[in-house]
Structures are given as C-alpha cells and as structure tokens.
Design a protein around this nucleic acid. Sequence first.
RNA 1: GGGCCCGUAGCUUAGCCCGGUAGAGCAGGCGGCUCUUAACCGCAAGAUCAGGGGUUCGAAUCCCCUCGGGCCCGCCA
Length: 501
Amino acid sequence: MDDPPPLERERRAKLERRRAAGEEPYPWSFPGRALSGEVRRACQALSAGQDERSRAWRVAGRLTTIREHGKTAFADLEDADGSLQLLLRSDLLGEDAYRARLAELDPGDIVGAEGWAAVSKRGEPSLAVSGVTLLAKAIAPPPEKFHGLQDPEQRLRRRYLDLLASPERRRLFRARAALMSEIRRFLDGEGFLEVETSTLLPVASGAAAAPFVTHSNYLDADLQLRISLELPLKRLLVGGLERVYELGKTFRNEDLDSTHSPEFTELEVYWAYADYHDMRGLVERLFARLADRTDALFPDVAEVRAAAGRFRPPFATVDFVEELERRSGIPDLLGKDRDALRRLARAAGSTVPENSSTGTFLDKLFEKYVEPTFDRLTFVVDHPEATTPLAKRHRSKPGRVERFEIFVPGFELGNAYTELNDPEEQERRFRAQLGDRGDDRYAYDDDFVRALRHGLPPTTGVGFGVDRLLMALTGTPSIKEVILFPLIRSSAPPREGGTRS
RNA sequence: GGGCCCGUAGCUUAGCCCGGUAGAGCAGGCGGCUCUUAACCGCAAGAUCAGGGGUUCGAAUCCCCUCGGGCCCGCCA
C-alpha cells in the first residue's frame, strides 16, 4: 500500500486523537440544525459588538477558513444557505477547550457548532460559539481558498472539489434544477403528460447520429441507446395521449466540444390537434417563464440577466430560403439539384462527404452563410422539404415544410414541426432520404410507419437541447459547465508501487 | 480526422525563449497575537518539474515518443 500523503498525516493524527479521547469523529447526526441564513437574519437586529444570548442556535457545514488571533479566532462555515462566521473565544469556551478545538480543526472539516447570534466589532454577522462538534474530518485538504480549483481537467474529473471550492458553481447547478422544474411546471400547467420512454432500443431512430451499442445477455441481442425521443412519443399520440413530453437523457456516439456532449438532456413535446404556429406560441410562453425564473435566480449577475433577456420578445424571424438566398447571393435555391448544391457547398468551404443528401448540402450552406449572422434569439422558419423527413409539407409554400428552428448566437437550441402524419408520405420520405444519401446512417423505422397507418392526429412537436438552453439562459459558454459529470477519458492507471515495504 | 496550446508541492503559481543548486503564496507543523474576513508576524518543513527516451560535462528548460487536458477547424439532417 502507498504511504499516506505527508500532507494528510497531520489531519489523520488529529482524527486519531479525537478517537483516543473517546469521541466519534464521524458521528451519525447533528439534530436541531438551523441554516446559516436564519442566524444571519437573527443578527440583523443587533449592532456591531452586540450578541443575543436568549436563543441558542445549532448550525452545521464545512469550515472554509480559520483566522486565529491568539485568544480569539474566526472561522467561516459554509452550508446550503451560504456562509456564516463562527466567533470562537477563549473566555466563552474555556482556555483549554478553546486551545484543544483550534488545534484539531482544519479548513475542509465538516462541523456542527452551537452558540448564539452575535455581530462582530467589525459588523460581521456571526455565531458566538459555545461548543463545536466534529461531524466529518477532512483528511484531504480542500483546494486553495482564494483561487479555488483552476485546473480544467481536475474541475471535470473531480467535480466535487470544483463544487466545494466554488459557491458560484453550486449556484449554477441549483439553477439548472430550478429551471428543469420550471419547464415541468409550465408543461404540466398546459395539460401535458410527462412520460418516460425506453433508453434501450433494438434500433435507435428519429435522428441521423451514430448510436452507442450495448448488449442484452437475456435477449442475446445487441441494443442501442436512443438518439432521439421523437418516434416513441408520436406513437403515444397514435395511442390517444394527445399531449405528452419527455425530459431525459439522449446519447449520440460523437465528439464532445463546447456545444456537443455524447450524453445530453433533451426535451421533446408533442401536441395533438395543434400546428407549428400554436407550438411557437407555446415556446414563447415557456421562454418568458424561463427568463423570469433566471432573473429571480441571478438577480445580482448582470451577464446572466442579459443572457436571459434574449428569451424575451421581440424575436427575430427569418425564412430559411429567403434568408439564405439573400445572404449568399445564390438565386433559386429550390430549383437546384443535388450536384449543384454540392458544388455550392464546396465553394462555401464545406467538406461534408460527397454522398451527403440534398438536405445536408442545404443545411451546410445555411450554416456557412446565415448562422454566423445571428446576433439574437432567432426563429428560422419553413425549411426546404429535403432537409426534414419528419415534417409535414407547407400548406402554402411549395417545396417547403412547416418547421421552425430556434437559434441563439453560436448554436441551435430547438427544432419544431407540424408533424408529418401521412404514412405513405412518411414512407416515401424515409426511402428518398436513404436513396439520396446512399448510406445506412438513417435507420428506417417501419414500425413507426405502421403506427402512422393507424392514424396520428394533426400534431405539432418540438425538441430542445436542454443543456444548451441552460447555457443560453445563463450565458455559460461551454456545455461541460452545465453538465455535472461530462464524459471524460478515464485517467491513466496508477504506476505499480510494489517495491515499498 | 487536422492544427495550436497546456501539464512544476495537496491547491494557486514563478522559472522554460537564452541549459548551470526549482522560487513563492495558500493549506499543513512550531511559536506569537482578543475583531479578523485572501487576517497578520517569525521559524522550520514540503517537488517522480505528467511518463519514457534522446542530445549535452550538465535538462523543468532543447529534440522525439506516449499519456491526460484545453481551444480552434472538420464531422454530428
């Protein structure tokens, strides 16, 4: 076995001294605990140098810093509610107890403290401590107290250290949870039913992306992790559920970069007897709610409020074809065949494969000429039919589908259609795309076509990348910063250490 | 897949160009201090310079390989 790191030896010795004194260094509970905010509020009635001994408080949390001044010491205790200064004095604790306690406490320790509300002479709300209980000894030291954990690799690999060193990071992940709850509250209030569909499937479908493959021992069959929620949810509307949504993990076996994660959280919403105009209204109401909630969560952070402000009207709207023709100077895009579009995409600098579909080349052109021009939240509407096998053809614009995509500067947030519900048309589109692409990446889902034959009501649906939505709302530039444990290569195995005796 | 950059004590880092005993701050140890809040002052300790190989009298520093990470580009309807 390895020797304990020298820096941990002292902390371990302190732990053993506690045990030798008959005290449990990892006790089971600390009853009667108040949050730090309650004590801070109790301090508001006091002026500097005053205390209030009629009420005893018990608080618990992690010690972040300890400042010793001979017969007085200050320590900061952090809990879910914030930070509270502990005021330790030799005349309150008794000289021996004071010395003994300070000798055994380290930054990073989890402690319980009891005492009374007091405001220091310098005006800091505090707890004047009459007793301290060790609740969990930190054998390993915390990150540096001022700079925190800076190494980006360690921040991802050991997220618990990143979180314990950074109240801001903790706040971001609390905000993530609060915004997810807000999404659920909003959709529940609109009469949508939250459902959970399968993650493991015989064939992942509903998008063109490489799946993760795993194996069922029981079935003796390979299974794939889902790449989209779309087709199972539409089946539920065939089944009569009418309004459903799912909020869950989706997996794509592709690269990780600032806006892509192989494992990400998706929201998809399907709404029978409504079209994409209705969906746009629903999305705009959801945005208003999320913007309000974000403002409430970060009232003091101007950057976040500015980012959340993008989710309030007026929103920009551009027609896919008109905007692409205008920005690129290319006329009559819908009249071009695949070869012509391929040449145009090449000329624009795209290196997508030769056998890519007509839709892919159009998307690439849009990506090159139009996407970089977005300076606000923008709805892109009415895409060419070739880009979209699952959307219904436009009721008045030939060659188009009823679709909108939502962009913020830098990336796509969401995608909505009036859903294609004609089974024969669906089958034709699937086959057209297969033939067009000449590759097998798009899994043909014949059971989905069979389900459509039983009748899918007129329906609209939308899908959101929830991690990206959180990035855009909070102004966070990297998807890794809104995912607690992003995928990362496992670190190299430790070297053999067999020569130690 | 291509390019650029990074890895020094538990943490934050200096040193690398231009080769010559690896320097600090925080945390930890010892001592001092009754109002600090990145507390302060003094003393002592703490380093596989990511790993391996090469060049050299001498490598944290120059070269090559490997590992890990970051950013950009490509790909991901």
